[in-house]
Protein backbone atom coordinates (compact mmCIF):
# COMPACT_ATOMS: atom_id res chain seq x y z
CA UNK A 1 0.00 0.00 0.00
CA UNK A 2 1.03 3.56 -0.64
CA UNK A 3 1.34 4.35 3.06
CA UNK A 4 4.12 1.85 3.44
CA UNK A 5 6.64 4.51 4.26
CA UNK A 6 4.72 5.21 7.43
CA UNK A 7 4.69 1.59 8.43
CA UNK A 8 8.34 1.21 7.49
CA UNK A 9 9.34 3.84 9.96
CA UNK A 10 7.18 2.00 12.45
CA UNK A 11 9.32 -1.08 12.02
CA UNK A 12 12.58 0.86 12.13
CA UNK A 13 14.81 0.06 15.03
CA UNK A 14 12.40 -2.46 16.51
CA UNK A 15 13.69 -5.56 14.81
CA UNK A 16 13.87 -7.41 18.09
CA UNK A 17 10.24 -8.22 17.41
CA UNK A 18 7.44 -8.23 19.89
CA UNK A 19 9.28 -9.96 22.69
CA UNK A 20 10.28 -6.73 24.38
CA UNK A 21 6.69 -5.68 24.71
CA UNK A 22 5.66 -8.83 26.45
CA UNK A 23 2.32 -8.73 24.74
CA UNK A 24 0.25 -11.82 24.45
CA UNK A 25 0.31 -13.68 21.21
CA UNK A 26 -1.16 -17.00 22.30
CA UNK A 27 -4.65 -16.50 20.95
CA UNK A 28 -5.60 -19.65 19.12
CA UNK A 29 -8.68 -20.80 17.34
CA UNK A 30 -10.42 -23.00 19.91
CA UNK A 31 -11.89 -25.13 17.11
CA UNK A 32 -8.61 -25.69 15.30
CA UNK A 33 -8.39 -29.28 14.11
CA UNK A 34 -11.84 -30.21 15.40
CA UNK A 35 -14.27 -31.90 13.01
CA UNK A 36 -17.61 -30.16 12.58
CA UNK A 37 -19.41 -33.40 11.75
CA UNK A 38 -22.16 -34.13 14.26
CA UNK A 39 -21.60 -37.54 15.90
CA UNK A 40 -24.45 -40.02 15.34
CA UNK A 41 -25.09 -40.41 19.04
CA UNK A 42 -25.92 -36.73 19.42
CA UNK A 43 -29.52 -35.50 19.22
CA UNK A 44 -29.29 -32.59 16.76
CA UNK A 45 -32.38 -30.85 18.08
CA UNK A 46 -31.15 -30.87 21.65
CA UNK A 47 -27.66 -29.80 20.66
CA UNK A 48 -28.98 -26.90 18.59
CA UNK A 49 -31.26 -25.80 21.42
CA UNK A 50 -28.42 -25.87 23.94
CA UNK A 51 -26.15 -23.86 21.63
CA UNK A 52 -28.88 -21.32 20.98
CA UNK A 53 -29.69 -20.83 24.66
CA UNK A 54 -26.06 -20.38 25.62
CA UNK A 55 -25.42 -18.10 22.64
CA UNK A 56 -28.40 -15.87 23.44
CA UNK A 57 -27.27 -15.58 27.07
CA UNK A 58 -23.81 -14.60 25.88
CA UNK A 59 -24.97 -12.07 23.30
CA UNK A 60 -27.34 -10.30 25.66
CA UNK A 61 -24.66 -10.23 28.36
CA UNK A 62 -22.07 -8.87 25.92
CA UNK A 63 -24.52 -6.15 24.89
CA UNK A 64 -25.05 -5.08 28.50
CA UNK A 65 -21.30 -5.09 29.15
CA UNK A 66 -20.76 -2.96 26.02
CA UNK A 67 -23.12 -0.40 27.54
CA UNK A 68 -20.55 0.16 30.30
CA UNK A 69 -18.08 1.47 27.72
CA UNK A 70 -17.06 5.06 28.57
CA UNK A 71 -19.13 4.78 31.77
CA UNK A 72 -16.94 2.56 33.98
CA UNK A 73 -15.94 3.79 37.45
CA UNK A 74 -12.23 3.85 36.55
CA UNK A 75 -10.23 3.54 33.33
CA UNK A 76 -8.68 0.22 34.30
CA UNK A 77 -12.21 -1.17 34.66
CA UNK A 78 -13.00 -0.02 31.11
CA UNK A 79 -10.36 -2.42 29.90
CA UNK A 80 -11.48 -5.22 32.21
CA UNK A 81 -15.19 -4.94 31.38
CA UNK A 82 -14.43 -4.85 27.65
CA UNK A 83 -12.30 -7.99 27.98
CA UNK A 84 -15.19 -9.77 29.63
CA UNK A 85 -17.68 -8.45 27.09
CA UNK A 86 -15.45 -9.62 24.25
CA UNK A 87 -15.23 -13.09 25.78
CA UNK A 88 -19.02 -13.36 25.85
CA UNK A 89 -19.30 -12.02 22.32
CA UNK A 90 -16.76 -14.60 21.16
CA UNK A 91 -18.74 -17.38 22.83
CA UNK A 92 -21.97 -16.18 21.21
CA UNK A 93 -20.39 -16.25 17.76
CA UNK A 94 -19.01 -19.76 18.12
CA UNK A 95 -22.27 -21.08 19.55
CA UNK A 96 -24.49 -19.47 16.88
CA UNK A 97 -22.22 -20.85 14.19
CA UNK A 98 -22.53 -24.32 15.70
CA UNK A 99 -26.30 -23.91 15.95
CA UNK A 100 -26.48 -23.10 12.23
CA UNK A 101 -24.48 -26.22 11.36
CA UNK A 102 -26.61 -28.46 13.53
CA UNK A 103 -30.20 -27.25 13.16
CA UNK A 104 -30.21 -27.80 9.42
CA UNK A 105 -30.78 -24.14 8.57
CA UNK A 106 -27.15 -23.39 7.66
CA UNK A 107 -27.76 -19.89 9.01
CA UNK A 108 -24.76 -17.79 9.94
CA UNK A 109 -24.20 -16.11 13.30
CA UNK A 110 -25.71 -12.80 12.18
CA UNK A 111 -29.00 -14.40 11.15
CA UNK A 112 -29.52 -15.48 14.76
CA UNK A 113 -28.32 -12.25 16.34
CA UNK A 114 -29.98 -9.72 14.06
CA UNK A 115 -33.02 -11.29 12.48
CA UNK A 116 -34.93 -12.89 15.35
CA UNK A 117 -37.38 -11.06 17.61
CA UNK A 118 -37.43 -11.02 21.39
CA UNK A 119 -39.97 -13.87 21.53
CA UNK A 120 -37.49 -16.09 19.74
CA UNK A 121 -34.63 -15.36 22.12
CA UNK A 122 -33.94 -18.06 24.69
CA UNK A 123 -31.73 -16.02 27.02
CA UNK A 124 -32.47 -15.95 30.74
CA UNK A 125 -34.18 -12.88 32.14
CA UNK A 126 -31.30 -12.08 34.47
CA UNK A 127 -29.08 -11.28 31.47
CA UNK A 128 -31.43 -8.71 29.98
CA UNK A 129 -32.02 -6.59 33.09
CA UNK A 130 -30.55 -3.08 32.74
CA UNK A 131 -27.04 -2.61 34.13
CA UNK A 132 -28.10 -0.65 37.19
CA UNK A 133 -25.14 0.51 39.24
CA UNK A 134 -21.71 -1.11 39.35
CA UNK A 135 -22.75 -3.17 42.39
CA UNK A 136 -25.71 -4.72 40.58
CA UNK A 137 -23.60 -5.40 37.50
CA UNK A 138 -20.95 -7.14 39.61
CA UNK A 139 -23.52 -9.19 41.52
CA UNK A 140 -25.07 -10.29 38.25
CA UNK A 141 -21.70 -11.12 36.72
CA UNK A 142 -20.74 -13.17 39.76
CA UNK A 143 -23.91 -15.22 39.74
CA UNK A 144 -24.02 -15.56 36.00
CA UNK A 145 -20.36 -16.55 35.66
CA UNK A 146 -20.59 -19.09 38.50
CA UNK A 147 -23.71 -20.62 36.96
CA UNK A 148 -22.36 -20.67 33.43
CA UNK A 149 -19.02 -22.03 34.61
CA UNK A 150 -20.75 -24.99 36.22
CA UNK A 151 -22.64 -25.63 33.00
CA UNK A 152 -19.54 -25.34 30.83
CA UNK A 153 -17.58 -27.69 33.08
CA UNK A 154 -20.23 -30.27 32.37
CA UNK A 155 -20.40 -29.50 28.65
CA UNK A 156 -16.63 -29.76 28.25
CA UNK A 157 -17.14 -33.52 28.02
CA UNK A 158 -20.16 -33.29 25.71
CA UNK A 159 -20.39 -35.86 22.91
CA UNK A 160 -20.35 -33.07 20.35
CA UNK A 161 -16.67 -32.18 19.96
CA UNK A 162 -17.40 -28.63 18.85
CA UNK A 163 -19.59 -27.76 21.81
CA UNK A 164 -17.08 -29.50 24.09
CA UNK A 165 -14.26 -27.32 22.72
CA UNK A 166 -16.31 -24.12 23.03
CA UNK A 167 -17.16 -25.06 26.62
CA UNK A 168 -13.55 -25.86 27.46
CA UNK A 169 -12.50 -22.42 26.28
CA UNK A 170 -15.44 -20.94 28.16
CA UNK A 171 -14.37 -22.61 31.40
CA UNK A 172 -11.16 -20.59 31.43
CA UNK A 173 -13.00 -17.39 30.62
CA UNK A 174 -15.78 -17.91 33.15
CA UNK A 175 -13.26 -18.75 35.87
CA UNK A 176 -11.67 -15.36 35.29
CA UNK A 177 -15.00 -13.52 35.14
CA UNK A 178 -16.15 -15.14 38.36
CA UNK A 179 -12.90 -14.14 40.03
CA UNK A 180 -13.13 -10.55 38.79
CA UNK A 181 -16.73 -10.21 39.95
CA UNK A 182 -16.07 -11.93 43.28
CA UNK A 183 -13.24 -9.52 44.06
CA UNK A 184 -15.49 -6.56 43.40
CA UNK A 185 -18.39 -7.95 45.42
CA UNK A 186 -16.01 -8.36 48.36
CA UNK A 187 -14.52 -4.88 47.91
CA UNK A 188 -17.90 -3.21 47.72
CA UNK A 189 -19.44 -5.29 50.50
CA UNK A 190 -16.47 -4.63 52.77
CA UNK A 191 -15.82 -1.06 51.57
CA UNK A 192 -17.75 1.96 52.77
CA UNK A 193 -21.25 2.07 54.29
CA UNK A 194 -22.58 3.33 51.01
CA UNK A 195 -20.94 0.62 48.92
CA UNK A 196 -22.09 -2.03 51.40
CA UNK A 197 -25.69 -0.85 51.10
CA UNK A 198 -25.53 -0.81 47.32
CA UNK A 199 -23.84 -4.19 47.13
CA UNK A 200 -26.46 -5.77 49.38
CA UNK A 201 -29.24 -4.25 47.26
CA UNK A 202 -27.61 -5.51 44.06
CA UNK A 203 -27.19 -8.97 45.50
CA UNK A 204 -30.82 -9.07 46.66
CA UNK A 205 -32.05 -8.16 43.19
CA UNK A 206 -29.88 -10.76 41.53
CA UNK A 207 -30.65 -13.63 43.87
CA UNK A 208 -34.34 -13.10 43.16
CA UNK A 209 -33.52 -14.53 39.71
CA UNK A 210 -31.68 -17.62 40.88
CA UNK A 211 -34.80 -19.74 40.58
CA UNK A 212 -34.91 -19.12 36.85
CA UNK A 213 -31.25 -20.01 36.44
CA UNK A 214 -31.57 -23.24 38.39
CA UNK A 215 -34.68 -24.23 36.43
CA UNK A 216 -32.69 -23.78 33.22
CA UNK A 217 -29.62 -25.59 34.50
CA UNK A 218 -29.48 -26.94 38.00
CA UNK A 219 -26.14 -25.76 39.28
CA UNK A 220 -27.60 -24.90 42.66
CA UNK A 221 -24.86 -26.48 44.74
CA UNK A 222 -21.97 -24.90 42.88
CA UNK A 223 -23.51 -21.44 42.64
CA UNK A 224 -24.65 -21.28 46.25
CA UNK A 225 -21.23 -22.47 47.45
CA UNK A 226 -19.61 -19.57 45.61
CA UNK A 227 -22.18 -17.09 46.88
CA UNK A 228 -21.78 -18.26 50.47
CA UNK A 229 -18.03 -17.91 50.31
CA UNK A 230 -18.12 -14.48 48.70
CA UNK A 231 -20.87 -13.02 50.88
CA UNK A 232 -19.09 -14.21 53.98
CA UNK A 233 -15.85 -12.53 52.93
CA UNK A 234 -17.80 -9.41 51.97
CA UNK A 235 -19.88 -9.22 55.16
CA UNK A 236 -23.07 -9.46 53.09
CA UNK A 237 -26.25 -11.39 53.78
CA UNK A 238 -27.16 -14.05 51.26
CA UNK A 239 -30.92 -13.86 50.77
CA UNK A 240 -33.06 -16.99 50.46
CA UNK A 241 -33.54 -18.22 46.94
CA UNK A 242 -37.22 -17.79 45.99
CA UNK A 243 -38.83 -21.20 45.52
CA UNK A 244 -40.39 -20.42 42.16
CA UNK A 245 -38.76 -18.73 39.17
CA UNK A 246 -39.85 -15.16 38.40
CA UNK A 247 -40.16 -16.04 34.72
CA UNK A 248 -38.83 -18.28 32.01
CA UNK A 249 -36.62 -16.54 29.49
CA UNK A 250 -35.77 -19.96 28.12
CA UNK A 251 -39.35 -20.21 26.87
CA UNK A 252 -39.30 -16.77 25.28
CA UNK A 253 -41.06 -15.23 28.25
CA UNK A 254 -39.00 -12.06 28.72
CA UNK A 255 -39.12 -8.86 30.70
CA UNK A 256 -39.91 -5.59 28.96
CA UNK A 257 -36.17 -4.88 28.79
CA UNK A 258 -35.22 -7.35 26.07
CA UNK A 259 -37.15 -5.82 23.17
CA UNK A 260 -35.48 -2.38 23.41
CA UNK A 261 -32.08 -4.02 23.88
CA UNK A 262 -32.59 -5.96 20.67
CA UNK A 263 -34.06 -2.99 18.85
CA UNK A 264 -30.81 -1.14 19.43
CA UNK A 265 -28.60 -4.13 18.65
CA UNK A 266 -30.45 -4.87 15.41
CA UNK A 267 -31.21 -1.31 14.27
CA UNK A 268 -28.52 -0.88 11.61
CA UNK A 269 -28.60 -4.45 10.35
CA UNK A 270 -32.37 -4.34 9.88
CA UNK A 271 -32.32 -0.90 8.25
CA UNK A 272 -30.08 -2.39 5.55
CA UNK A 273 -31.15 -6.01 5.16
CA UNK A 274 -29.44 -6.35 1.76
CA UNK A 275 -26.16 -4.88 2.92
CA UNK A 276 -22.88 -6.64 3.58
CA UNK A 277 -20.65 -5.51 6.42
Amino acid sequence: MSDDHVYMSLAEGHDDGDARWAFGTGFEDPLHGISTAVPDAVDRGELAATCLELADDALVTAQRLAEWTTRAPELEEEVALANIGLDFLGQARLLYARCGQVDGSQRGEDAYAYFRDADDFRSVRLAELPNGDFAFSMARLLVFAAWRLAHFEQLATHADPVLAAIAAKGVKEMTYHRQYAAEWVVRLGDGTDKSHRRMQAGLDQVTAHLGELFAAHDARTAVLAVLRQVTEAAGLTLPDVPPTPVGHGREGDHTAHLAPLLAELQSVARAHPEATW
Binding site: R20, W21, A22, F23, G24, T25, G26, F27, E74, E76, V79, A80, N83, K172, Y176, Q179, Y180, E183, R187
Partner: peptide, 30 residues
Protein backbone atom coordinates in the same frame (compact mmCIF):
# COMPACT_ATOMS: atom_id res chain seq x y z
CA UNK B 1 10.55 -9.75 33.87
CA UNK B 2 10.60 -6.41 32.09
CA UNK B 3 9.13 -3.15 33.27
CA UNK B 4 6.19 -2.36 30.98
CA UNK B 5 4.53 0.61 32.64
CA UNK B 6 2.33 1.53 35.52
CA UNK B 7 -1.30 1.53 36.53
CA UNK B 8 -3.54 2.44 39.43
CA UNK B 9 -5.13 -0.05 41.80
CA UNK B 10 -6.52 -0.06 45.31
CA UNK B 11 -4.57 -3.15 46.37
CA UNK B 12 -2.15 -5.81 45.13
CA UNK B 13 -4.87 -8.18 43.94
CA UNK B 14 -6.51 -5.51 41.87
CA UNK B 15 -3.15 -4.42 40.50
CA UNK B 16 -2.49 -7.95 39.25
CA UNK B 17 -5.93 -8.16 37.66
CA UNK B 18 -5.49 -4.81 35.97
CA UNK B 19 -1.98 -5.65 34.83
CA UNK B 20 -3.21 -8.84 33.26
CA UNK B 21 -6.01 -7.01 31.47
CA UNK B 22 -4.00 -4.02 30.37
CA UNK B 23 -0.48 -5.19 29.68
CA UNK B 24 -0.94 -8.78 28.60
CA UNK B 25 -4.51 -8.70 27.29
CA UNK B 26 -4.98 -11.76 29.46
CA UNK B 27 -2.59 -14.00 27.65
CA UNK B 28 -2.27 -17.14 29.71
CA UNK B 29 1.13 -18.28 30.85
CA UNK B 30 2.85 -14.97 31.27
Amino acid sequence: HVHVGSLHAADDTMALTHARDLYTRRNEGV
